[in-house]
Design a protein around this nucleic acid. Sequence first.
DNA 1: TTAGTTTATGCTCAGGATAAGTATAAGCCA
DNA 2: TGGCTTATACTTATCCTGAGCATAAACTAA
Lengths: 318, 318
Amino acid sequence: MAGPPRKPKTSESARAITADLVAVLVAVTDGEPKIMTIAYAGALPSGPFEFKHRSLQSGLRTWVEQQTGHPLGYVEQLYTFADRGRTGDAKSPHSISISYLGLTREDQVGPGSEAHWSGWYEYFPWEDHRAGPPALLGKLLAPRLRAWSKSAPSAALQRERWQRAAITFGFDDREWNEELVLQRYELLYEAALIPEAVRNGNGAAPVVPGRAMTADHRRILATGIARLRAKIKYRPVVFELMPAEFTLLQLQRSVEALAGRLVHKQNFRRLMEQQQLVEETGAIAADTVGRPAKLFRFRHAVLAERAVAGTKLPLSRT
Amino acid sequence: MAGPPRKPKTSESARAITADLVAVLVAVTDGEPKIMTIAYAGALPSGPFEFKHRSLQSGLRTWVEQQTGHPLGYVEQLYTFADRGRTGDAKSPHSISISYLGLTREDQVGPGSEAHWSGWYEYFPWEDHRAGPPALLGKLLAPRLRAWSKSAPSAALQRERWQRAAITFGFDDREWNEELVLQRYELLYEAALIPEAVRNGNGAAPVVPGRAMTADHRRILATGIARLRAKIKYRPVVFELMPAEFTLLQLQRSVEALAGRLVHKQNFRRLMEQQQLVEETGAIAADTVGRPAKLFRFRHAVLAERAVAGTKLPLSRT
DNA sequence: TTAGTTTATGCTCAGGATAAGTATAAGCCA
DNA sequence: TGGCTTATACTTATCCTGAGCATAAACTAA
């Protein structure tokens, strides 16, 4: 091991990169899904990963808790991105983004910082089907995507494009699949219908409603929403977004907020009951309209009792 | 923007790290699931991520194809790890590992290199339930885990430990859940029953069968197996592991190899049929025992026809 | 006081999916 | 020819799921 001191390995530094942590922090307030944003709602909170952190996850928790002043509950890794030119500057240090999904409650977040809660449907207006398919789907997206399909060089490609659009957006009487958030975003990106896709010049292409974000943050957000929409169907994660006590309707509204579609009330209750995910607190909800509802709490025991709790959602077809 | 030339930002380099790509490459040959290994079956293939690669995924494809001499089919990101001390050497450059799952066929892999195909149940003997629960489950694992449970400081903790063991391994007449590969590995790790957990000194603790791997490669493998076992149930990915033409029994055997458990033959065929995942080639399989079977091929059209193809598996309870 | 509105909660029903079993067909080989 | 193996068709019982009907319990406006 002894020997002449060596020069620092500069060849190594050619491969050196930096790592950023990006968080999709979700809360549901008054039946609306929110995400934490910075930079005037134009970016997701992110910070550098430093090696004083024990692990990626603890690094994320550390700075999120610094920013929000409150411990983070459920955390799950989403995806790692590292496309060259992500930052648009070839000279800038190359960076890898490791994204996470985190669940909290809005009222747990302290003041200060530039953090801000934004409704997530501001970024994806076409994803909210709680009041039926949004008008912009048929009025705006369908014709634009049809035009994009027609612009393909061959007839086969034209059909393929429209088929993809129809499947992901539920055109031509197909069913709406709320989990295809990312596929829809990527299709719109490919069709150059959103600002991120036409950012670097290329003229001002026609653009569809929905707020944009820096870099690929909106793509990360789409990934997070898709993951969460899939997860609530087989894991009891909704409860991370609920207060300690809640009525079944409040719980249902939260699920509907995330899924972007309505569920059948009676079936939803039947499911909650037979899976024993909740238990009555004995109290009755105050300040409500209509017949008073029982208050419930999450049965934390289920997490220990079974490994996978199938929290199926009775989604309405209408 | 003009001004005196600045010194290179050495403060930045404090955060500099390197990124490695690690691959779980899966094939199924003669009804046995295999993974590609290097270093005498003691490590997963891995390589540095360099920024000449356009993206993480293309970086992976590039060096996998260099090593195996054949293009890679299905690829999916698994997880990104970055725990400090992963390498055990605090002075070594900090590194992030981004792991991928890739599906191929063994016969597509060219010669040369130190690559080698190993049966994945060599690393996880307790995961193969095709011939019923392995003997070592009741004979070895149950008593060891029972002892570990008993060694907990409090009665409550003791109960909790055994409950976790029982749930993940299916003790006490619980059902075996083939998807909990990672949870089982991590439990054994926590109980210090596998070499990786007692590697850094700590004396020679009792150890359970199953080949170990360098660093956290066996954990990554467990992640990959778990992901694949979950995925075959709702996405038609098995076909990536099959030759162009196959009999339904061969297809079934591949699924069973991955899932580590048997499926009901008649129901399996019904499912394949009604989901229209395969179509007859018209030919009949040669060199078989028993009644000759029709040959089938994957209907690639389904990938375009629907977004999510529910390839449910009719798993046997017996 | 009553009709109307809102939410809560109990119950039924039909269709589909699923697990499992029975039965028969079609090859081979001793 | 009988026995073995695999292929393939069909049946049955059960459970899950979506959907709707009906009733209860509060409030409010006429």
